[in-house]
Structure formats: C-alpha cells, structure tokens
C-alpha cells in the first residue's frame, strides 16, 4: 500500500523543479516581468516578442489561427495597437469537451515602441500564425557613418 497519497508526487527531482519554478516566478526570471504601464498580465493572448535593430523595431505576435482580415493594426506616434478576434471551436451537438486551453474571443494589445520610430513606415506580414510588424526608425535617428576629413 502507499504510505501517504502524497507519495504519488514522484521523485525529489520533481520537487526541486517545482521549487526552481517558484523561485523563477518570484524573481521574475521565468516570465520576464515587464514593468511597462501598458503591459498585460503574464499569459495574456497573444504573447509578444519585440526585437530592435538600428533600422527598425520588430514586433512578433504569436497569434495562430486568425484571419488576417479580422486583425486591426494601428499606430499613433510610438503606440502600436493590435486588436482582433479569434473564434473558438464551434460546438456541435454530441460534442464532449475535455480541455479548453486555447484562447477565444477578442483581444487587444497596446505596445509602447521607442520614441524614434516612423509611424508612416510600418509593414505587417502574417505567416504560420505569427504576425510580424516592422516599424522603421526615423531616418534622422539611424546611425550614420561620419567621414573624417
């Protein structure tokens, strides 16, 4: 017989991993805790990655299963707003759901970009469920090579 039910928990490694996860959450390593005033709670849909180069700021939204036409992307100065709607799986008669982890409904994310982006120069592509928004930096703020005479 099992001495206690908690024996089901498994090995000591499982416990160590749990502790590590809790520490990560506590100190914000696991999910980089953003202090941005417009940043949503961890786990919000869609997850976002942002990268920067000298020429542009690139925003990647992990938003699978969307109709690109249903997405609304707008930019005002350095505020990028992306909103849309994702339909859930249609419920038919005699369907029994066991899990519903995928996001469904409307979403909106507002992202503060660096100040030197050019709102006139934005390009968006949707591929394999990732929306890639490229915002060029203003011509004046791009690095220039200065010739020494």
């Amino acid at each position: 017989m099992f001495t206690t039910l908690s024996d089901f928990g498994g090995s000591i490694f499982e416990d160590l991993r749990r502790i590590q996860r809790e520490m990560d959450d506590l100190f914000g390593f696991g999910q980089q805790l953003s202090t941005g005033i417009r940043s949503p709670q961890p786990g919000a849909f869609p997850p976002v990655n942002i990268g920067s180069t000298d020429e542009s700021v690139d925003v990647y939204l992990f938003a699978p299963g969307l109709d690109p036409k249903s997405m609304d992307i707008s930019i005002q100065q350095n505020l990028l707003t992306i909103s849309g709607k994702r339909e859930g799986v249609k419920e038919v008669e005699n369907t029994n759901f066991y899990r519903r982890e995928r996001f469904s409904g409307t979403f909106k994310r507002v992202i503060t970009l660096p100040d030197d982006v050019d709102p006139e120069n934005v390009d968006a592509t949707y591929k394999e469920g990732v929306l890639h928004v490229q915002v060029q930096r203003k011509e004046s703020s791009k690095p220039r090579l200065i010739q020494v005479k």
């Binding site: 980089q32 953003s34 961890p42 990655n49 942002i50 990268g51 180069t53 700021v57 690139d58």
Partner: peptide
C-alpha cells in the same frame, strides 16, 4: 534579422 537585440520576450 541580423544584429537584432531583444527588447521584450514573452
């Protein structure tokens, strides 16, 4: 892109 630096990553 090349030389891209991450600013934020979920």
């Amino acid at each position: 892109k090349e030389n891209m630096e991450p600013i934020y990553a979920d």
